[in-house]
């Protein structure tokens, strides 16, 4: 039997009369490198928002490791190992990258509620933050305000921040968007280097990246799951070509 880490059952989300997510039942296996593709407006980001608790679903359920997490707040899902990056950077503008990452690590370690000890006193947290920032090439700007960093650096911080929570399931919403072409594979290779039991669900438009990274692909069209399969199956599927690849070809 396959080991399903993340699952949705009949998930629906309406915005007024518009059905952004239409009866999606998705299963993601442990350790999968699962890609979610689909044309613009197919509801990929909405689905990620439903999975992470940014939006409540109109109907249906979300399961993490077999547990119903549909009504859990985002922070509780993160504590259970589910986190994400955002398509459009969601960072703390007035923080430095060091403060940003250190806070995420402190929260992961359960010391975020301490209001008496200076964060500088948590040597392990600070060391880990420095190590993580170095890995993402952000060591040289760790003391700058985030808002003044070049976009590419902010993008890397966006991803580093999700790593700081040490997720067991990581949802990446177009991580390479805005990253210069020659650095894209580098970003994805850091993601590929994650331990094998970490599950990754990736939304991406760059088909090269998807085909080189993913071992399973789900295609979303007009809010509904259109088809699903291995890279070979999807890339050979003429219907997928028609709805999606056709546009780019």
């Amino acid at each position: 039997m396959s080991d399903i880490v993340l699952e949705t059952r009949n998930l629906k989300r309406r915005f007024g009369a518009f059905l952004a997510t239409n009866d999606v039942s998705l299963k993601v296996e442990r350790g999968a490198r699962h890609a979610l593709i689909g044309p613009n407006g197919a509801g990929k980001t909405t689905l990620i928002n439903l999975l992470t608790g940014v939006l409540p679903p109109s109907e249906g359920q979300v399961f993490l490791e077999g547990e119903d997490i549909t009504s859990l707040a985002s922070f509780r899902r993160v504590k259970r190992g589910l986190t994400r990056t955002f398509q459009i950077n969601q960072l703390f503008n007035d923080f430095t990258p060091l403060e940003t990452v250190a806070l995420a690590i402190a929260e992961r370690e359960g010391v975020g509620h301490n209001l008496w000890k200076s964060i500088a006193g948590y040597g392990k947290v600070v060391d880990e933050a420095a190590e993580l920032l170095s890995r993402f090439g952000l060591a040289s700007v760790m003391g700058e305000r985030t808002v003044i960093l070049p976009y590419g650096k902010q993008r890397l911080l966006e991803i580093a921040l999700a790593f700081a929570s040490k997720p067991r399931v990581l949802l990446l919403d177009e991580p390479a968007a805005g990253v210069p072409e020659d650095e894209r594979h580098e970003v994805l290779s850091i993601v590929s280097d994650l331990p094998a039991d970490v599950t990754v669900l990736l939304i991406e438009h760059d088909m090269d990246l998807v085909f080189s990274f993913a071992n399973r692909i789900s295609v979303l069209v007009a809010g509904a799951l259109f088809t699903e399969g291995t890279v070979a199956e999807i890339s050979a599927d003429p219907r997928v070509k028609a709805v999606y690849l056709g546009e780019n070809a």
Binding site: T83, R84, Q90, A104
Partner: peptide, 10 residues
């Protein structure tokens, strides 16, 4: 600074 992201770092 960003309540949504704060939630996403627990």
């Amino acid at each position: 600074g960003n309540a949504m992201r704060a939630g996403m770092i627990a």
